[in-house]
Design a protein around this nucleic acid. Structure first.
Lengths: 333, 333
DNA sequence: TTGAAAGCGCTAACAG
DNA sequence: CTGTTAGCGCTTTCAA
């Protein structure tokens, strides 16, 4: 591979001048520019981004950390980030944690290695104190709802609490009053999904609906989990049964509906089912799912813009108004 | 950030020794090892991967090129590649082409930049001659079925021709004889999907079924395309109608089925529908899809192992037996 | 407007 | 077993 030296030699100039050309410095005569261009062309020269980064101490690689790429939520997020990043001349290094804290740490360590100049964490496993301790090595943006305040870390938040509140109210307005609830966490304040729990609780409270502990289902993620919930629900006494369930995820919702079908429980006539995420398959289901859609596209775009601004030391204000979740009404509720 | 120099200084040793330690060279006394370890610990030292790569001329980054990450086929592929790569100490740089030839070239150029030491092309837009011309700059593995022979380029092939042949025979054995066919390409030999076309044609021929041009649908990709196909099929005279259609993609299949439902055409009773890909939603559909499953997991693993072996100059033999597509029978056919 | 020279952080002969 | 030294390919003073 040709180096800057070869180009300089062939053009009869110094490497300095060639370097200047590469970086669009002023003060190069057009004549030399021409020569350099020709030499580069002839040698099929491409600057080594490695050397550039090492010397100039500014990288062009952005890390993106997700739980699993096969989860469409993350796939769409990464898709949006990739488009925006490419457009601004940045590359993406993708890592998956699969929910593992240590993997997350390993990725954060790449900031020290200078492999990446910034990291977008689309999900977070460790506590934010730990994450923040890496902020001195590079830019970090985290997508999560939290009360944690920090000026080294930028947070890019969607309002899960509000979305859940809205969703439950949507059900209430539709006349449902017995609203069961499924969560991926354990329904405590520290668990995953705690902000959604708050939204659920707040909506019930405002409508003077008493919480029924037996209608709370914890640690559910998969279609199978959903089917199990449906079984449990079906075992309840007719009058002890909720008339709706907020499933917390589209997978779980699909599982519930599928099992209900086998049990001859009609959706939404007997029990309405509401999902969360608006997965691609949700509109394709046998009973198209009423669900909550997340703004993956704008979330990804803004995350990319944010991290780039942090890397480059410019300002970027997140536009919260673009980051709203919205209820997507179809047939299951 | 601490450098190797700082570590050497603090440990009272030369950078060479520290470098040796970093690279697990023999000939270092345990005593010094200890010192180095301590110094690194204290300084929170992490080697700059940039400098290492520049100097040693061996990188640790693998490029992965896909059409769109939001296509589950690619998401699952990348997922598998990521796992395998991580396990071997490599990182993934992801690029999307969105079907654009120039984007593919841009990605190939990264081989020259030394940004990546190898590239896995999960799909290919340009002709293989062009791709091959980049092979001198780094390892390239391409996943595509082709007759193109090359020793600079490694191909990792699934047998689309055979899978389609098998699928059509599956339909034939089920008693269907009028088998329509939809393709993403234009049904010519050069287009996307030409190997599938061959499989279709071969199966028909072997069963002495004459090709009916009016049952060939070209350039279809989306659910909407599928719905349009269904409309056209419904307009055919009852006796001119096929009794099955091989849709070429699950999306198209879903579209066809959905429209058929509106038109009161029963699936599979009136017309059987077969998809391709086994997308995650395919089993979830109203009428669970009979389709062809691709071995994304092993394909991804083998692609990763292959490119790593190429980068490291070792041998790796692709295990074709693991790369078989298989028919997944559900209800639509 | 141009060039010489000194590194960025690391590795790899070569010499002890 | 350990250190000296010369770069990898590029950018950036400094001086001309």
């Amino acid at each position: 591979m040709a180096t800057i030296k070869d180009v300089a030699h062939k053009a009869g100039l110094s490497v300095t001048t060639v370097s200047r050309y590469l970086n669009n410095h002023p003060y190069i005569s057009d004549e030399k520019k021409e020569k350099i261009r020709d030499a580069m062309e002839e040698l099929d020269y491409v600057p080594s981004s490695l050397a550039t980064q090492l010397r100039s101490n500014r990288g062009t690689m952005i890390g993106v950390l997700v739980s699993r790429l096969t989860n469409p939520y993350f796939a769409y997020l990464v898709d949006a980030i990739e488009k925006k990043a490419k457009q601004q001349g940045y590359r993406l290094l993708i890592m998956q944690t699969y929910g593992d804290k240590q993997e997350e740490i390993n990725t954060l360590e790449m900031l020290k290695e200078k492999t990446i100049s910034g990291l977008i964490m689309c999900a977070v496993e460790n506590d934010l104190e730990t994450v923040e301790s890496y902020a001195k090595y590079g830019a970090i943006a985290v997508s999560t709802q939290t009360d944690y305040k920090s000026d080294r870390l930028r947070l890019i938040t969607t309002n899960q609490e509000q979305a859940t509140y809205d969703a439950i109210n949507f059900l209430i307005r539709k006349g449902y009053t017995g609203i069961a609830y499924s969560t991926g966490g354990d329904f405590t304040d520290q668990s995953h999904g705690s902000y959604r729990n708050k939204g659920y609780l707040r909506a019930l409270e405002e409508s003077d609906i008493k919480l029924n502990e037996r209608w709370i289902f914890k640690n559910n993620h998969t279609i199978e989990d959903g089917m199990e919930i449906a079984v449990q629900l079906s075992r309840l006494n007719e009058k002890d049964r909720p008339d709706a369930i907020f499933a917390g995820s589209d997978e779980v919702a699909i599982g519930i509906i599928r099992k209900f079908e086998q049990l001859n429980i009609r959706v939404p006539a007997d029990i309405a089912v509401m999902g969360f995420d608006n997965q691609p398959f949700s509109s394709l289901a046998k009973i198209p799912l009423t669900t909550v859609g997340q703004p993956m596209e704008t979330l990804g775009q803004q995350a990319a813009s944010l991290i780039i601004s942090m890397i480059e030391g410019t300002e970027f204000a997140i536009d919260e108004s673009q980051l709203k979740l919205k209820i997507i009404e179809r047939e299951s509720a």
